[in-house]
Every structure is written in structure tokens, then in C-alpha cells.
């Protein structure tokens, strides 16, 4: 009975993992779910509400929205993943430098991180986009850079926590060198928190990427991308609700699933350390 209750606690995480798995499959093999062409125009079928042939309805040019949303999964996830990887990667370097380096380096890095944190994340991303110019690559870099300072601070804290722990001191008494302590204790210790951090961040990154595309700075039309689709439907929000509803639903679904999974990972990490 108690094992039943224990497994019941994992149902949300299992569901979230399933949703993400399906989305990843859709991103890699969109044809599996939507065999049609996302760019095929059929002006006669413009602005059809959801029906049996077009489950999500169609847009003004008569393109099937379901096909476009499914085909939009790839770019959205890819940019989100790329941005998260970039952000976490950069943050790991900054976090370790600040956490383990000499005091002046920690001071300098921490102040830079704080200055960057003072900007709202999206504004920072917009700033980067102004420099890099619009496009998928620019959006990835922008979101990656904008999320890095937040991660860097968390990683720095975790690194310092482990570096000051009793077991690192015990390792020093045993005569272990700096590299050995780094690879044996500090890296594995932070890796666990990084995994949950990355999953949690993925949802946020996807939302931001979509936001940039929505503002016309991310993936350029007519390519299907959730944010760009939202932007397309924006002017018809009062009349043709499905144009914004379905892309929005997928964004929310992805973000919520990533968050639920990330929370679950964080919880198991905490119970270990």
C-alpha cells in the first residue's frame, strides 16, 4: 500500500516525461504525426475553425495549423535546448571560476553577474538580438546569454558549498590534490544540481525563444515555429481564436512538463545530498 502511494507520487513526473518524449519524437520525425506539408497553401480553405480534416483549423492562406504546430516543434525545441546548453555551459565556467578562484576573481565575476541580473532577462536578450540581428541563431545566443547569469550564481553557490564542506577538508587532510578534489567531489556534486537546473531552465528558454519569435526577432516566417505562429495569429485573436490557442497550448505544455520534471529531479537530488 505504501509502495502504491510512493509510485502515485511519481505520476506527474511520469506524465511530464511522456509529454516531453512525444514532443521530441515530433521534433525529430514531424512527418510521423503530420504527413502534410506545413507550407502548402490552399486559399480556398482560409480561416477554417477546427474540424475533422483540420483538427486545429487553418490560417488565412489555408495552411493546416496542426501540421504547422507539429513541424514547429523542431525549431522551438532546438533553439530552446541550444539556448539552455549555452546558458548552462557559460554559467558553469563562470560559476567555477567565481567559486574556486582567488578572491578578487570571485569578486569581479560576481559583480558582473549581478549587473547582468539587474536587467530583466528578456530585455537583455533583446539587447543581444539588436547586436546579433534576428534569426534562429541570434535567438539561441540571446536567450543563452540572458539566462547564464542566473545559473552562474546558483552554480557558484553550490561549488562554494561543496568546496567548504567537511569532506573536501577530509580529502585535503588525506593529501588529495586540487584537481582530484575537483573531479572527485566538486564536479559530480554540482552535476546533479545542474541536471535539474537544465530541465527547469528548458521550459523557460522555450518560452523566451517563442517570445522573441513573437516579436518578430526569432525564426523568420513562413517557417513554422511556435512563437512565430503566435505572432501570425495575434491580429486575429478576437476572431480566429485557434490561431493563437494551439501554438500557445504547446508552449505551455512544454514549459509545464519541463518544470514538473525538473522539480522531480531536484527533489531526488536533494534527498541524496
Amino acid at each position: 500500500m505504501s509502495s502504491l502511494r510512493r509510485s502515485a507520487r511519481h505520476i506527474p513526473q511520469a506524465l511530464a516525461a511522456l509529454v516531453l518524449l512525444l514532443l521530441v519524437i515530433a521534433a525529430v520525425f514531424p512527418g510521423l504525426f503530420a504527413p502534410g506539408d506545413p507550407l502548402a497553401i490552399n486559399p480556398a480553405d482560409g480561416f477554417q475553425p477546427p474540424n475533422t480534416t483540420h483538427p486545429f483549423g487553418t490560417d488565412g492562406s489555408g495552411r493546416d495549423l496542426y501540421t504547422r504546430v507539429i513541424h514547429g516543434t523542431g525549431p522551438s525545441l532546438l533553439i530552446g535546448l541550444g539556448a539552455t546548453a549555452l546558458g548552462i555551459g557559460l554559467a558553469t565556467v563562470l560559476g567555477f571560476v567565481a567559486g574556486l578562484g582567488p578572491r578578487w576573481l570571485d569578486f569581479g565575476t560576481s559583480r558582473v553577474i549581478e549587473v547582468m541580473l539587474a536587467f530583466p532577462g528578456l530585455v537583455l536578450a533583446l539587447l543581444v538580438m539588436v547586436i546579433s540581428g534576428p534569426g534562429a541563431f541570434g535567438a539561441t545566443v540571446a536567450v543563452g546569454l540572458a539566462t547564464a547569469p542566473g545559473y552562474a550564481r546558483i552554480i557558484r553557490g553550490r561549488v562554494r558549498e561543496i568546496a567548504g564542506s567537511g569532506f573536501v577538508e577530509a580529502a585535503r587532510v588525506q593529501g588529495r590534490g586540487r584537481m582530484r578534489i575537483l573531479t572527485r567531489h566538486i564536479l559530480p556534486g554540482t552535476a546533479r544540481s545542474l541536471a535539474s537546473l537544465a530541465t527547469l531552465g528548458l521550459g523557460q528558454a522555450i518560452v523566451w525563444v517563442c517570445a522573441l519569435s513573437f516579436l518578430g526577432l526569432g525564426v523568420a516566417p513562413p517557417a513554422a515555429e511556435w512563437g512565430a505562429l503566435l505572432n501570425d495569429g495575434r491580429q486575429f485573436i478576437a476572431t480566429f481564436w485557434w490561431l493563437t490557442f494551439f501554438p500557445g497550448l504547446f508552449i505551455v505544455l512544454t514549459a509545464v512538463s519541463a518544470t514538473v520534471l525538473g522539480r522531480g529531479l531536484a527533489k531526488t537530488t536533494r534527498s541524496v545530498s
Binding site: 567537511g166 569532506f167 577538508e169 577530509a170 593529501g175 590534490g177
Partner: peptide, 23 residues
Amino acid sequence: TRRPNRHRLAAIFQDPLSTFDPR
């Protein structure tokens, strides 16, 4: 220069739990 001789000096503490990597 101390490291090669570190093994000759070992220590145990009041709170052993904190001296073990929890993983």
C-alpha cells in the same frame, strides 16, 4: 611539499557524517 607526507597524519572528527561525500 607537504602532500607526499600527508598520509602520515590522519584525522577523525566529532561529526564524521560531514566528512564523507554523501554520494
